[in-house]
Design a protein around this nucleic acid. Sequence first.
RNA 1: GGGCCGCUAGCUCAGUUGGCAGAGCAUCUGACUUUUAAUCAGAGGGUCGGGGGUUCAAUCCCCCCGCGGCUCACCA
Length: 488
Amino acid sequence: MAIEENEFISNRLEKLAGIREMGIAPYPAHTPDRLPVENLRSIGETEEVLCTSGRIMAKRKHGKTVFCDITDQTGRIQLFINKKNLDEVGWELLGKLDLGDVILVSGTLFITRTGELSVRVETLLLLAKAVRPMPVVKTDADGEMHDSVSAPDFIYRHRCIDLMLNLDSKNRFIARSRIISAVRGYLDSENFLEVETPVLQQIYGGAAADPFVSHYNSMDEECYLRIATELYLKRLVAGGIHRVYEIGKDFRNEGVDRTHSPEFTQLELYEAWTDYNGMMTRFEDIVQAAAKAAGVGPVAKFGGHEIDLAPPFKRVPFIPALHEKSGEYLFDWDAERLSGLATRLGLGNDIRDKPALLDKLFDHYVTPSLIQPSFVVDYPVELSPLAKQKADNPRITERFEAFIAGLELANAFSEQNDPIYQREVLEKQAAQSKHRSGVVDEEFLYALEVGMPPSGGLGIGIDRLVMVLTDAMSIRDTILFPHLRREQ
RNA sequence: GGGCCGCUAGCUCAGUUGGCAGAGCAUCUGACUUUUAAUCAGAGGGUCGGGGGUUCAAUCCCCCCGCGGCUCACCA
């Protein structure tokens, strides 16, 4: 299929043909040594002939002088191209260059009358001709952007354009990469071992979510994309890898919104000889490391809030907080009464069981107030099938969820390691839940039966962490290629 | 899946109480040897998301569909 034609593309294709007719290869195989644009800036004025390359972002023609701005990953620099400094071929080539073309230039560096460091171009080489035009962004004297690309679907579908033109977006993805790197660095320095567990699973578990279903032809069996790594990582703890983590994609076949993506990146770590208190410290440490990597100070700005990231984070007990915010002792209400309240609040009327109702009501009453980093602790046991109960109160578990800016960022608990209790819970759950077809993960239970040391486990939504640290209002802005419906 | 909003030139967006489709930037032609949102003169560029309906006439009103955003539901 030929590329879609329009005035702009055919225009450029003609120039491309013209360049070929000149005997110039428009996509040469390799380039001579070049300096990053940033290096030229730090060198400043010089009579030495230097070489750099980049994409043409602006072109200002003045007869026999042409000014171009080119950019590479390190920055922008102006080219001063004068007919008298260039050979005839170079000058003819210049006439066939457009915004977006990738070029290589060499020349000396000088400062123009208006005070801008510029390359006095002596040789000009084309490295890649752009046949598709890209939007032009201009910044006026007040620093205001004109014609920036803002349509969300355009940005998500053509991320290459977004990265070229929207500095905020580019910086966000750089920050994301550095955050993940810093998290790894922290965990590695604490002697955690990074592992990889199956993405393609015959039994999925570790969370309550609908999976993506696939089919393995040669085995002729149904399989699933993982929804969590939990049940595999705990087998490793039982096996003696006492500090272990995985950073990877989980897949949940559920609705998409500002804070949910069908494939998202999760860190799960498990650590023996500690409990959920240890996980709070780990979470605080990881947030510190990530914030530092993202260049965020002790106070992060997010959606107009100022968020103080300095530890220790606030502890908010689940049940007392719910009682305080709702003004009612909801934990003592029965399911019917809770359901009535939920319905009146417009929270949906199809929820029947009490724990789910409490969770829903907590979301309504308490979560929006959790702007500053907070650990919601001591969840009702029914909401936490894989967590250990408190020694002095079996109705609640040693579990926390971490919230920042009203976003749930992490979930952690003292891991349940009683194989008899765990089997009961999982079998009951498998029988009731729409998410399981009556199947429990026997290999996971086998590991608990062999014996797993007391451990803490922590899962962190990396995309949401990036949201908080880069002031992104949608999870899609933190994912390079978010899932979109197919274009018709 | 429900509700609301949006879709107009390559990009950002006006607009029409239903009557020849608009601007800035970008593109093309010309002028210009230190400009920087360069400037000046001229030109081209549209299935007004798609389909159907109402009407003398639809980009505009109605219906269906597509895509997107927000929101609700779902979601440990």
